[in-house]
Every structure is written in structure tokens, then in C-alpha cells.
Simulated assay, not measured.
Amino acid sequence: MTEARGTVGTTVGIAGVAWLIGALVLGFRWSGRQSTDGVWHDDVSLTRWVVCWALLALLAVATAPRLPRWSLRVCALLPFTLWVVWELRHGALGPIPMVIYLVPTAFVWSVALISGDWMRRRPAGG
């Protein structure tokens, strides 16, 4: 029972760090604006998203052993994901930006977790 509580607590802590990375890197001003007909610019640049994805990848690699099950791994990213959806909720483009930003986020998170698992399983010196 103590191990289960520790795992849930660890997941909550990692989820908090993932959200904090997003909040610090991406900020809280997410309104898009139309500069000319059909051309939209986000207040959050792609460069900031790449930095966020890189930091999330580092977090995932570092914490992969602390999240032994995929259900915990998904739960650790869920608050960040919900926050992104919340920030994009008033967008004129509907769910398109959510897909554009969340698919790479989930991909980076998953690949980094798998990489973290792989790095810990390979034999020393090989």
C-alpha cells in the first residue's frame, strides 16, 4: 500500500513539474491574431514550443523509472495537456491548434520515456 501511494505521489509531483515547465516556457498569453486574411500568428512561438518539448523530454527520460506503468505515464502528462486545451479554448480555429501542439507533445513524451527505459536496460559498457 505504501508503494502505491508513493507511486501516485511521484506521478503527481512529475505532473506538477511538467505543468510548471509549460507555464514557465509558454506563459499564459495564448491569443492568436490574424495579421492578414487567412494568416494567423500565435503569441506562443514555435521556438518556445520546441524548448518546452525539449524540457519535457528531459523530464521524461529522467523520471521514466519512477513511472513504471503507462497509465501513470499518461496521468503525469494529463494536467499539462488539459492546461493546453484550456489555454486554446477560445481559439477561432477550433481543435486544430490543439492537435498541432498536443500530438508532438505526446510523441516527444512517449519517445523520451521509451528512451529512458532503454538507456537503463542496456548493459554497462555496451
Rank of each mutant, 00 (worst) to 15 (best):
V39W: 03
L72Q: 06
L82S: 02
I96K: 00
V84A: 00
I96Q: 00
L24Y: 10
L58Q: 09
L24R: 15
L78Q: 02
A57M: 01
R69Q: 08
H41Y: 08
V12R: 14
L113Y: 11
P104D: 12
W19K: 11
T81N: 03
V74N: 11
T63D: 01
Q34D: 02
L67P: 11
W19A: 15
V103I: 13
W70N: 02
I21Y: 03
E87C: 06
L72C: 00
R89A: 05
Y101K: 13
V39N: 00
S71F: 01
A106I: 11
W19Y: 14
G16L: 11
D43V: 13
P79C: 06
D42S: 10
L55Q: 04
Y101G: 08
G94F: 03
P104C: 13
V84H: 06
G38T: 03
I100L: 14
I21G: 04
R29S: 09
V51I: 04
V51E: 04
D42N: 12
G91Y: 03
W86R: 08
W109Q: 13
R29Q: 15
G13V: 07
I21R: 10
G27P: 05
V25T: 12
E87S: 14
V99Q: 09
A112F: 07
V84Q: 00
V85N: 09
V39S: 01
V25E: 10
P68F: 14
G91I: 01
L20K: 06
I96C: 02
V50L: 15
I114W: 15
T36F: 02
R73F: 02
W49G: 05
V111W: 13
A60C: 03
L58Y: 09
H90F: 10
R66A: 15
R29W: 07
V61R: 12
V85I: 04
A106D: 13
W86T: 11
A18E: 11
W70Q: 04
V50A: 15
A18P: 15
M98D: 14
V108K: 11
W30C: 03
T81S: 09
Q34G: 07
I100G: 09
